[in-house]
């Protein structure tokens, strides 16, 4: 927050802070440096970052990376096995599977990321409020959260998407809304222990307004769990968005979305046409594993 106000001469400040018994600001900076060091030495984080980074590059520059038009159908060449021309073969409309896999990372990344951001923002606010005030609101919300959690997220999303009609924006809103209470639960647990600490009482004694205490005092101190929860949820979001597309209620044709590609071709497996299914499926697997490896690395860095 007021880190910019710290004088450049670090030593005396630290001494004063220690003398006052308050948390020295340099400690926070050191902790951050230490976390970064742990992260960069974490094999799972690096591996995950490389995989996810690759797919992000594909999502941004996809069209200019591939030689063939991923949308150009060519019925005469449909369902051709992988060859030098079509590395991953062609699908039932004769479209090049390789270019569709490369370009197909965009929708799932954008939707999963937006939904997780939405869920994290709402869930963090909800968790801060319920954890800080406790009481009736907290009890009532806990019950509602439990009721929502009694249904697999995929089922809630299917019902909502069928009722509202599928569109990318609807998927983002539905998945974000379902995530919010789950994230709220994690944040609430972190807030419960924070609210008993002295800096919160101090802020209260200073007569700070409640929103200030919540968002300027407590929030920065629960950012660790929030960041970890965000990456873990991002993995689930990719899982759910892919599953919804696979069920035909997610991303709609003619998008080269991976889940949709599997949906359009899985019936052909028993006919021997494995390539339009296997490659997009492998792409989904790599993305989900990549996100989870990043989450694994972050968890290690923050939980020390």
């Amino acid at each position: 927050m007021s880190a910019g106000a710290t004088p450049p001469s670090a030593l005396p400040v630290e001494d004063v802070a220690v003398a006052l018994g308050g948390p020295p600001r340099d400690d926070a900076r050191l902790a951050r440096k230490e976390r970064l060091r742990v992260l960069l030495h974490s094999k799972s984080f690096i591996a995950g970052a490389i995989i996810v980074g690759f797919w992000i590059v594909c999502a941004i520059f996809g069209r200019s990376l591939v030689l063939q038009d991923p949308f150009a159908s060519n019925p005469i060449d449909s369902l051709q096995a992988p060859s030098a021309d079509n590395w991953f073969g062609t699908d039932r409309l004769g479209r090049d599977v390789f270019s569709r896999v490369i370009v197909g990372s965009r929708d799932i990344l954008v939707i999963a990321f937006s939904a997780t951001v939405l869920g994290t923002v709402l869930g963090t606010a909800l968790g801060l409020v319920t954890g800080y005030f406790r009481g009736f609101v907290d009890d009532a919300l806990s019950r509602i959260i439990e009721a929502i959690l009694a249904l697999p997220v995929v089922l809630v999303a299917i019902m909502a998407l069928v009722a509202l009609g599928p569109s990318n924006l609807t998927i983002i809103i539905v998945v974000g809304l379902v995530f919010a209470p789950i994230i709220a639960r994690t944040v609430r647990a972190a807030v419960l222990s924070e609210r008993e600490l002295e800096y919160v009482s101090a802020a209260r004694l200073r007569n700070e307004r409640t929103p200030y205490i919540l968002f300027a005092e407590i929030l920065p101190n629960v950012m660790g769990p929030v960041i970890v929860e965000f990456t873990v949820r991002l993995g689930y979001a990719v899982f759910i968005v892919a599953t919804l597309s696979f069920l035909g209620v997610g991303v709609q044709p003619p998008s080269p979305d991976w889940g949709l590609q599997v949906f359009e071709h899985y019936g052909l497996i028993s006919g021997g046409y494995w390539w339009p299914v296997l490659f997009p499926a492998a792409a989904i697997a790599s993305l989900v594993i990549g996100v989870n490896l990043i989450a694994d690395g972050l968890t290690q860095a923050f939980e020390r």
């Binding site: 599997v262 021997g272 989904i284």
Partner: peptide
């Protein structure tokens, strides 16, 4: 642990098509 969690993170339909391709086809 890492293998188990990665396997859990992969959507079930991905496992399904991979198993189908390997064991059935």
């Amino acid at each position: 642990t890492v293998g188990g969690l990665s396997a859990a993170a992969v959507p079930d339909f991905v496992w399904a098509v991979v198993l189908l391709i390997v064991f059935s086809l």
